[in-house]
Amino acid sequence: MKPQMTLLSCSKLVFKDSKDQILLDHVSLEVQAGEKVAIVGPNGAGKSILQKHLSGRLNPAMGEIKLHDKSLSAIPPLKRAQLMAVMAQSEQIEPLLSVAEYVSLGRIPHQHSSKAKEDNKQIDRAIKICGLEKFKDQTIQTLSGGERQRTSLARAIAQSPELLLLDEPTNHLDLRARADILKLVKGLPSTVIAVLHDLSLVHDFADRVIVVRQGKIISDGPPSESLSPAIVRDVFGMETLDVLHPVTGKPLRVYEAPHLETNIQTEKEFTYA
């Protein structure tokens, strides 16, 4: 087994909003090369804020972020773009661009260090990985929501990043498209940190799950530990149910709202004045 190498780390990150409210509260973590990490938590927990710090799009009030053991703030933007790619929740894409044209934007960070042949190779590779060959010459405006998400992902893959940061990559997608996107990402060689909101998708994707609440890390470990019934109940207010798939026998974890006891009166129990 190869020794693990820390690719990204942060130490005691603190971030406050304009009203001096703490949104990240002394957050520290390490991400090893090759890991697939999910960041989960209730709405307003600080997931996306943490992701934006890890990508360098926001600067902390306190603390430090390191990439390859070098302060992220000290890495020039061009070099940073060669090492990491970001797929935001809702990317603004020029609708008249073709799929190939948009994906090619991922090669901009490498335009002074690679040849056109290598750029085209990486563009074609990204389009193939994301299953977009038949849409290559279509304009963005003709694509479905799922196809646009895959196009955004292909642009990030074409960047050839060591680290891929995804913010709600399954947002607004149907169930099949969500599963397809995460299966695709799972197979990439890059280290991936993904903010996810659908707990049912986490187990098949993540090697490790970071649970965030009120700007703090509540749990950090394998899915079975970080999403234990006790933690899910405490953080999300949901109950967990472990079942076996009726056909494959595969263990499945289902999340559902707790059953509420209600006092329902029958017609005979009503007293009329």
Results as ranks from 00 to 15, higher is better:
residue 189 P to M: 09
residue 152 S to Y: 00
residue 164 L to T: 05
residue 185 V to H: 00
residue 117 K to A: 15
residue 134 K to I: 11
residue 113 S to V: 15
residue 128 K to F: 08
residue 165 L to E: 02
residue 186 K to C: 08
residue 180 D to H: 14
residue 114 S to D: 10
residue 188 L to E: 03
residue 140 I to V: 13
residue 156 A to E: 04
residue 176 R to G: 05
residue 172 H to I: 10
residue 179 A to E: 10
residue 142 T to N: 12
residue 112 H to F: 15
residue 151 T to C: 13
residue 132 L to E: 04
residue 158 A to R: 00
residue 140 I to L: 11
residue 116 A to E: 14
residue 161 P to A: 06
residue 128 K to Q: 14
residue 120 N to E: 15
residue 143 L to I: 12
residue 135 F to G: 00
residue 146 G to M: 10
residue 148 R to N: 06
residue 116 A to K: 15
residue 156 A to P: 02
residue 180 D to A: 08
residue 165 L to P: 00
residue 151 T to Q: 05
residue 144 S to I: 08
residue 173 L to W: 02
residue 184 L to Q: 04
residue 173 L to M: 07
residue 151 T to A: 07
residue 162 E to W: 00
residue 131 G to S: 10
residue 119 D to K: 06
residue 114 S to L: 12
residue 122 Q to I: 05
residue 142 T to Y: 05
residue 122 Q to A: 10
residue 129 I to A: 08
residue 136 K to G: 02
residue 113 S to H: 13
residue 169 P to L: 10
residue 157 I to K: 01
residue 161 P to M: 02
residue 146 G to Y: 12
residue 138 Q to Y: 10
residue 143 L to V: 06
residue 144 S to P: 09
residue 144 S to H: 12
residue 128 K to M: 11
residue 131 G to Q: 13
residue 113 S to F: 13
residue 163 L to D: 02
residue 182 L to A: 04
residue 117 K to N: 15
residue 177 A to F: 04
residue 159 Q to D: 06
residue 172 H to M: 13
residue 183 K to N: 14
residue 139 T to F: 07
residue 162 E to H: 05
residue 174 D to F: 11
residue 125 R to L: 14
residue 176 R to K: 15
residue 154 A to R: 01
residue 135 F to C: 03
residue 172 H to V: 11
residue 179 A to D: 07
residue 176 R to D: 11
residue 183 K to T: 14
residue 120 N to F: 15
residue 156 A to L: 06
residue 154 A to L: 05
residue 134 K to Y: 12
residue 160 S to F: 01
residue 133 E to G: 07
residue 145 G to F: 07
residue 181 I to Y: 03
residue 133 E to N: 11
residue 184 L to T: 10
residue 172 H to W: 03
residue 188 L to H: 05
residue 160 S to Y: 00
residue 154 A to G: 07
residue 168 E to F: 07
residue 180 D to N: 14
residue 180 D to C: 02
residue 127 I to M: 13
residue 163 L to P: 01
residue 185 V to S: 00
residue 149 Q to P: 03
residue 188 L to C: 06
residue 157 I to P: 00
residue 124 D to N: 14
residue 134 K to P: 01
residue 139 T to L: 08
residue 142 T to Q: 12
residue 114 S to Q: 14
residue 155 R to Y: 06
residue 140 I to N: 03
residue 153 L to N: 04
residue 178 R to C: 08
residue 113 S to R: 15
residue 143 L to S: 03
residue 175 L to H: 13
residue 152 S to I: 04
residue 139 T to I: 12
residue 184 L to S: 08
residue 123 I to Q: 06
residue 135 F to L: 09
residue 162 E to V: 00
residue 131 G to K: 10
residue 121 K to W: 09
residue 115 K to I: 13
residue 116 A to M: 14
residue 141 Q to K: 13
